[in-house]
Every structure is written in C-alpha cells, then in structure tokens.
Simulated assay, not measured.
Amino acid sequence: MKSTTRTGQIDYIIQQLSHEELQAFVREKAAQDTDFRDTLLICFADLLGSDASNEPKYQQMLADIIQRHANADGYIHAASATHLTAAMQHLLNVARKATTPTRETLDLCLAVIGCLPALVHKMEDPDEHLYCLMQASCTILWECYSVMPNERQQALFERILLEHAKPHYLDLDLDSHLLTLLKDWSKQDQRRQTTCLHQLETLLKATAEDHWRKQYLLEQTKALLNYWKP
C-alpha cells in the first residue's frame, strides 16, 4: 500500500524515477524557479570545488533578488518588500540547516548583512523586516561560531569588527546585533575587549557635535564594561 503522507509519497516517486529523469527535473526546476536554484547552489556549493569565498556570489544573488522586487525606479514598496524579505529569510533558513557547509552559511550571512544598509534607503519597511534579517543573520553567525576552529573564529570576529566600524550601520540603527556578537565573542578574551573598546573610542571621536550619537556610544561602552566584569 502506497504511503499517504507527503514525505512517503515523495520517497515513492523518487524511487520510481530514473537518474536521468531526476537530473532533467532538477535542471528544468532550477531554470524556472529562482528560489529552488538558489537553494540548490547554497546546499551543494562544496561540489563546485572552489577554495575562494563565495560571498561575492551571494552578493550578486541578493542583488538579483532585490532587482526582481523593485519597481522601474528601483524602489520597493511594502507589498513587494514583504515578498523580498521572505525570499531573503528563506535563504537564511537554508543556510541555517545542518547540511549546509559552514563556509557557505558564513558567506551568505555576511552578504545579507552587507546589503541591508543600502536597502534601508530604497525599501518601504513599516514592519522593520530589515532589522529582523539583521538579527537572523547575526544569530546564525553566533551559532556557527561555537563549532568553528580557533583561527576561523578569530577571522569571523575580525570581519564583524570591520563591519561594525562602518558608520552606516550606526546611522541606520543596525549596529546593535553586530556589537552583541563582538561582546559575546570577547567575554573571555581581554585582547579582544581592548580592541572593541578602542573601536568605540574611535567612533566616539568621529561623532564631533552629534550629541545623540555620542551619548549612544557612551552607553554602549558602559554596557560592554559591565558585561565583561569578572
């Protein structure tokens, strides 16, 4: 008797199909369905055999997705923004799967983080989807960090430190999740703590007459020091 569950039915269909039929289906589906294609490229990126970072590839992938949801003027209205952010969240969900190579997960999350500041200026976002994407990306990075070797942990720390130093994250209130990563990853490392404090000091010096930003950075510095107390 054939299974009545979807999983069972899919298993049965796969067993009945030949290798050539499956290949033809995947090729056709990838050509017609961009979400399926992107998922396929993320999940099996290791098969492509490149040691280079795939972040540029994911940056282009995201740029293509953004372009598909923008109007003729390049602006993304609320309805399209909902579909866009859902598509980006889908990619993050794929990246979060245990079967996705960690390197691909990192590259995709960093690409998402990097594209958010520009999106703020050309997307209607009353429900703050972009901030949710930032939170999701940073959460996935935090999860990956714990299973990475020390040298890769350090490389990721330095990359997030570099991102946090870019003023547009602070300008757009997208910096807090980045700082949370730095805060957690520095808790047991005094050298990293010093590096983070030095960066905040540099940002403070650059605030000039912006009293609101200065106060905000001072509060962040105080919060870090309290968190790192022995």
Rank of each mutant, 00 (worst) to 15 (best):
M1T: 06
K2A: 09
T5P: 01
R6A: 09
G8S: 10
Y12H: 14
Q15R: 15
Q15N: 14
Q16D: 11
S18M: 05
S18V: 10
H19V: 11
E20Y: 14
E21C: 15
E21S: 13
L22D: 15
Q23K: 15
F25G: 09
V26Q: 14
R27A: 15
Q32W: 11
D33E: 07
R37G: 08
R37H: 05
D38Q: 10
L40P: 04
L41F: 05
L41M: 04
C43I: 10
L47R: 07
G49A: 05
S53G: 09
E55K: 10
M61E: 03
A63L: 09
D64P: 02
Q67P: 01
Q67L: 15
A70Q: 07
N71V: 08
N71R: 11
H77G: 13
S80P: 03
T82W: 05
H83N: 06
L84A: 02
M88K: 00
M88H: 05
H90Y: 03
L91G: 00
V94Y: 00
R96F: 05
R96Y: 04
T99E: 10
P101R: 00
T102N: 03
T102Y: 05
R103S: 08
D107T: 01
L108G: 00
V112W: 03
I113P: 00
G114C: 03
C115Q: 13
L116N: 00
A118R: 10
A118Y: 03
L119D: 02
L119N: 01
V120F: 08
V120Q: 11
H121V: 14
H121R: 08
M123P: 05
M123W: 06
M123T: 13
E124N: 13
D125I: 07
P126D: 13
Y131L: 14
M134Q: 06
A136P: 07
A136K: 13
S137Q: 04
C138T: 04
C138K: 00
T139L: 07
T139I: 14
I140A: 01
Y145N: 03
V147A: 11
E151M: 13
R152E: 06
Q153L: 06
Q154E: 12
E158T: 04
L162S: 14
E163L: 15
K166F: 08
H168S: 11
L170G: 02
L172D: 08
L172K: 07
L172M: 08
L174M: 12
L174A: 07
H177M: 10
L182T: 01
K183D: 08
D184G: 12
W185N: 00
S186P: 02
K187P: 00
K187D: 12
R191D: 06
T194H: 08
Q199C: 01
E201D: 10
L203E: 08
L203Q: 02
A206K: 08
A208C: 09
A208Q: 12
D210Y: 11
W212M: 11
K214Q: 10
Q215L: 09
L217I: 09
L217Y: 05
E219R: 11
T221K: 08
A223I: 04
A223G: 11
L225Y: 09
K229Q: 09
P230F: 13
